[in-house]
Amino acid sequence: MEPPKELVFSYFAGQATSVQQKVIGEWLTQPGSRERYFQWLDEWERAYPQYTPDVPHHLELFQQRLDTPADVESQSVRPLLNRSNQRWYSGRWLVAATLTLTLLASGWFFREPMFYTTISTGSHQLRSLRLSDGSTVALNSRSSLRVPRIGYGWLSRQVALTGDAVFDVKHLPDNQPFVVQATNGLAIEVLGTEFSVRSSVSQAEVVLKRGRVNLHYATDDRPAQDLLMKPGDRVTLNGRGALQLQKLPDTTQFAQWRYRLFSFNNTTLREVANQIQYVFGVTVQLSDPILARRTLTGTIRAGSSDELADALAELLGLRVSHRGQNLIFSTASEPQLTQ
């Protein structure tokens, strides 16, 4: 059971009792609790700023110590010459501090887990989350969202997506933009809107339901491209690095995978198979090439690839065989395949 936010804030402030600490510790063992914990931690730290060291100043002092070792010895080491144990501990501390500062300066000291939190979904999992600025994200299966742990909402609002997601972005009084980094080189910048993004290694798709979105795509080997989207626009980034705009006649079926609804309008079975493969991460095979041209119109609610495949087989008068992560569609007249 999730504890009240006020209780967790008391824990951050060091005011929680031993019983309350135990409640929070048990909550953190539950799946999904850590993402909420770090969201609240970021919110609490922004509301109650803690001491922030002047890193450039201390790095400069450290460099001065390296450049003038004689001064360092006269100021720090000489008074301790008759205290050998303390000198040894001071030397060990100095080595540790040197290593830590070097790693911090180079950006390698726990950079990924320290500065970002990543929320991921499995093959058959959907997930909804609310970011600390009030924006909401719905993640499709086999997707991940990377969010900064520190500074999100006041330094910047920039996240990175791999997979499929729907964003409902909250507009802030200072008009701070919200940026989604999708496939390499593609950035989606908004002020307040609802849109979906599908991002893979080399291809991407953005569909805008409401609001306005500015797309910016730039790589080292291609000139920059900018495109302003309006509601109902669908933009794809193809394998050749070109942005292609298409106007959707109907947005009522916008990202229906959030509700496990699958809508088809004269859709071929091959296109349906591709959608099943993308959403659920399974392999779909058609035993006869003729089946690929069969079409389907309607809406099916299904929570798994097996449910959707069985419904499709019943509607189209086909047979489907379930073999682990493989679905095989065949005609009813073909011999029954071993399950």
Rank of each mutant, 00 (worst) to 15 (best):
Q277I: 01
V147N: 12
V190N: 08
P113H: 08
D310A: 15
A273W: 15
E35W: 10
A204R: 14
R146A: 07
A332D: 14
I276C: 05
S305M: 02
S330C: 01
R323C: 03
G134W: 13
R92F: 03
D221N: 15
R258K: 05
E2M: 08
L316C: 06
A160W: 14
V272M: 07
S263A: 07
R319Y: 05
A302K: 02
V207S: 07
E334Y: 12
A255V: 02
Q275G: 10
S200L: 15
S321M: 10
L186W: 15
L291A: 00
D42M: 08
T136H: 06
S141N: 10
Q244Y: 08
H124L: 11
Q158S: 08
E334P: 02
K209M: 04
E189L: 11
G241Y: 04
A224W: 13
N265P: 01
V197A: 12
T295V: 06
Y51I: 01
A105N: 13
Q86S: 11
N85S: 09
D288M: 03
S144F: 13
A47Y: 00
R46P: 02
Q75T: 02
T236N: 07
S202Q: 11
A313G: 06
G163R: 07
W44F: 15
W88P: 04
I24C: 07
R78S: 11
N85I: 09
K22M: 14
D164E: 09
I150D: 10
Y152K: 05
S10L: 08
L172F: 12
Q225P: 05
A13S: 08
T52I: 07
L94K: 07
T299C: 09
L101A: 13
V159A: 06
N265K: 14
V201I: 13
T162V: 12
S321K: 10
V23H: 13
P249A: 09
T338P: 08
V23F: 09
L41E: 04
L291C: 00
P231F: 15
G232H: 00
S120Q: 03
R270N: 02
Q15M: 05
F167P: 08
L316F: 03
L291W: 02
A302Y: 01
G192C: 00
D306I: 15
L61I: 00
A165S: 11
V284E: 00
S333P: 00
V207F: 10
L337M: 14
V206W: 05
P113S: 15
L327H: 03
V320L: 10
S123E: 05
L129T: 13
D221W: 09
D250G: 13
T52Y: 03
P177A: 06
A138R: 04
Q125I: 10
